[in-house]
């Protein structure tokens, strides 16, 4: 497996944002994304229903693709990729 392939599937950072209400999930995520290198993935778990449209809007506006937005039970999982320069 090449380094590029490994980077594209490995989660570089995982955030537990369960129990936090708006706007905490998105602000903690925005802050954490600053530490990632281009191409790296960040995973976030949240319980706030408002986070679903928030993460989508944030990804679109800032250009960091939301590669996954899923839900299991009452927990939402988001995976974001840090954009290329």
């Amino acid at each position: 497996m090449t380094q590029e392939m490994a980077m594209s599937i490995t989660i570089a950072m995982s955030l537990d944002l369960k129990g936090l209400s708006c706007p905490m999930p998105i602000i903690k995520t925005a802050k954490a994304m600053k530490q990632l290198a281009p191409g790296q993935l960040l995973e976030a778990f949240a319980t706030d229903p408002g986070s679903v449209p928030d993460f989508k809007a944030w990804a679109q506006t800032t250009g960091n693709p939301l590669v996954e937005s899923s839900q299991e039970g009452g927990v939402f999982r988001f995976v974001l990729r840090k954009k290329e320069i």
Binding site: C22, P23, I27, A57, T61, T62
Partner: peptide, 11 residues
């Protein structure tokens, strides 16, 4: 403050 946060995260 929430509005400020929202705008800040959106760049």
């Amino acid at each position: 403050a929430v509005l400020a946060v929202g705008a800040a995260v959106m760049g």
